[in-house]
Design a protein around this nucleic acid. Structure first.
Lengths: 216, 216
DNA sequence: CTTCTATACTCCCTTTGGGACTATTCAAGG
DNA sequence: CCTTGAATAGTCCCAAAGGGAGTATAGAAG
């Protein structure tokens, strides 16, 4: 943590707060725009419900990390937020700490964890759904990557940083698909009642071997 | 959704509810044991705060999906829950639906998303932290995999299903580590001020090529 | 006996999800 | 011009969940 002067007092800042602050560092935005931005790229790595996001910029403004400018389009209210110098320093201080590792929530995997209480067909369907998920998500990734290569990506000037995150997602989706293909083979060899499935030694050895990269 | 008879009325069941129900399908347990089980393997794919977990089995019992047996160890209270036939049917019905795709939350990636508002050194530290995370997590995975190969894994009789989920995690951790190694190379080529980083065309082409698996 | 860990919970305040709602603007079509 | 639907711009509400703090007993070790 950097200078004590920049440590916000009052409401605590969450990762979501910093994400909104980061978006304001890139560009001043209306609260609606902020919720849209959070829904796109960032939503893949820090998904948040839109309805809760409207509160964040207010909090940042209350802490002096952002400034709120009330305005209107005709009779419709509109608030545009912009980052303050204090906000920039606070963001930079946060970036200087390494951050928590990924947290994964997968209902599909929970179902597979208990696959022996359903049918093998159910398990295969769940695996297929996982692959479909990866495919669908990857389509967006390809499109974005190509746009950047063509020099026409959103926030093209930020391509270097966006690529690092985009590559992670690319690899993630690819991994899910490859795992799904493998799992389909393995589970396809199960009996109809998965309770009868036993250790597939060859497959297990392959998995353990794959895990060997971190072994000292 | 299967037979209407088995559709629970009253409190809504969440994925967490089903996970607890699944654990009871494997073995009757005290609420404390349930919270421990949720903290181990399942916590990697469906992390939940222990303090909230004590409510779930109560809910299942209220719905007739589990039965609660009050008891004691000396003067200490203890409640053991076991699944009912209705509970088994409800679990099986849930397993018959494919389930939602993975949801990822990564503070590290959020930081990298805004890396151009920090320093290149910060970004490299964040990448190193991601790799360290993958390493640490993978160590557990290796240990578990070897125990299963040796026939001494926890719930060895469920090795077939556990392997499918374990393989996913193995691949995930490996992917994070490989991505981190790549990202370290790429970011290592950035100028000291990451705002000066520009499109690394060769790297971007590699990423887009890697994403090509799902392209029709 | 003391200390620490394990077992076995409950409570509390904050954050968050997700849905529902209100209202104006803008665009397209009849 | 009017109507309809999407976009913009929010607020509210109830349930789920995070994370910390707390209480209490049992068991192990010194």
């Amino acid at each position: 943590m950097s200078t004590a002067d920049d440590r916000p007092t009052g409401p605590r800042l969450t990762t979501t707060s910093y994400a909104i602050l980061g978006l304001l560092a890139v560009r001043s935005s209306s609260s609606y725009e902020l919720t849209r931005q959070m829904g796109r790229g960032l939503g893949r790595i820090w998904p948040r419900a839109a309805s809760k996001l409207y509160e964040e910029p207010k909090k940042l403004a209350a802490l002096g990390l952002a400034r709120a400018r009330e305005g209107s389009v005709g009779e419709r209210r509109r608030t545009v937020y912009s980052i303050t110098p204090k906000g920039r320093r606070t963001l930079a201080a946060w970036l200087a700490e390494p951050g928590a590792g990924p947290v994964l929530e997968s209902e599909q995997l929970v179902k597979l964890f208990f696959a022996d209480h359903g049918t093998t067909r159910d398990a295969l369907a769940t695996i297929a759904a996982a692959r479909a998920w990866a495919e669908e998500r990857n389509e967006d990734n390809v499109r974005v990557g190509r746009a950047y290569l063509g020099g026409e990506g959103e926030f093209q000037e930020r391509v270097a940083t966006n690529m690092v995150v985009g590559a992670f997602l690319t690899e993630l989706y690819r991994t899910v698909a490859e795992w799904a293909d493998w799992a389909e083979q393995v589970v396809g060899r199960w009996p109809e009642d998965p309770r009868g499935a036993t250790l597939d030694r060859e497959a297990m050895e392959w998995v353990v071997d794959r895990a060997g990269w971190s072994v000292r």
